[in-house]
Amino acid sequence: MKLLIVEDNVSLLESMKRMLEDEFEVETATDGEEALFLAQQNIYDIILLDVMLPEMDGFTILKELRKDQIMTPVLFVTAKDSLEDRVKGLEIGGDDYIVKPFQTAELKARIRASLRRTSNMTIEHTLRYHGIELFGKDKEIKVDGHPVKLTITQYELLEYLIQNSGNILTREQIFDRVWGFDSDTTVAIVEVYIHHLRKKLEPYGYHKDIQNVRGIGYILKEPKE
C-alpha cells in the first residue's frame, strides 16, 4: 500500500517513515505545495497530513484535493488539538485526526481504521465511464443502457477502476482497496476478477478498456485504434 506523509519537522517525518515503512510504501513531503503536487499526480491509499505547513496549510491542501474530486483518505497528524480545528478538519473532508505526540500503535490503528472504512464505502451517486453507469445507492450497473449483473466484489472492482480511469493501478493497490489489507486471500485474486469483469463487459466492447500494464497492474482507458 502507498502512503504519503506530509510533515515539515524533518526529524518527526523520518521517525514516522521508519514507523510505517515495514507495512507501507512511504513517500514524503515537507511543504504544502509539494504535498499538493504529489497528491494530485499520484495515487495514494492514505495521506498523513500536518496542518501547519510552509507554503500551504493542510486544510487548504485537503480543500483543493476534494475540489479536484481526489477522495484519498486523509488522516490529520497535528499539534493543533482544539475542538474547532478537529471539527474543521472533519467537515472539509478529513477522515480522522490524531494529535501529537502519539504512539506508533495508535497511529497504525487509526490508519487501518481509515482504510477499512474507505474499502467498505461505495459512492451513492451515479458514476460514469463512457456508456457504463454505476448506481452507488443500489449497487446496480448499466452498460449502454442495458442492466448488467455483477457480484458486489466485481462492482467494487469496476468502481475503483472507473474512479481512477486513466491512471495505472498496481495489483497491490487494487487488492488492498477491494479486498482489504487484512484479507486472507492473496493478490493473485485480482487477475481472476479482472478476467471475469472483462467477460461481463465483452458484449459491449468495454473489456478492451481494462488494459494490462505489464509487470505492474491495470489501467482503464480507451484502447488505441
Rank of each mutant, 00 (worst) to 15 (best):
L3V: 13
D8Y: 08
D8A: 08
N9V: 03
L13T: 01
S15C: 07
K17A: 05
K17C: 08
V26L: 02
E27N: 06
A29K: 11
A35L: 01
L38E: 04
L38Y: 07
A39R: 09
A39S: 15
Q40V: 12
Q41L: 13
N42G: 05
L48G: 09
D50G: 12
D50F: 10
D50M: 11
V51N: 09
M52D: 13
L53N: 14
D57S: 13
D57A: 13
F59E: 13
I61N: 13
I61Q: 12
L65W: 02
M71T: 01
V74G: 10
V74P: 10
V74R: 11
L75M: 05
F76R: 07
D81W: 08
S82G: 03
S82Q: 04
E84G: 00
D85K: 04
R86E: 08
K88L: 15
E91G: 02
G93L: 00
D95C: 08
D95A: 10
D96H: 01
V99K: 00
K108N: 08
R110H: 05
R112A: 14
L115N: 09
L115E: 08
R116A: 02
R117W: 09
R117E: 10
T118D: 09
T118A: 12
E124W: 02
T126C: 05
L127S: 09
Y129M: 07
L134H: 01
F135W: 00
D144C: 00
G145E: 04
K149G: 03
T151F: 04
I152E: 14
I152H: 06
I152N: 11
T153C: 03
Q154L: 10
Q154C: 06
Q154F: 00
L158N: 10
Y160C: 08
L161Y: 11
G166Y: 03
T170S: 02
D176I: 07
W179G: 07
F181S: 14
A188H: 14
E191P: 00
R198N: 12
R198V: 12
Y204E: 06
G205E: 05
Y206V: 09
D209T: 00
Q211T: 05
E222R: 15
E225M: 14
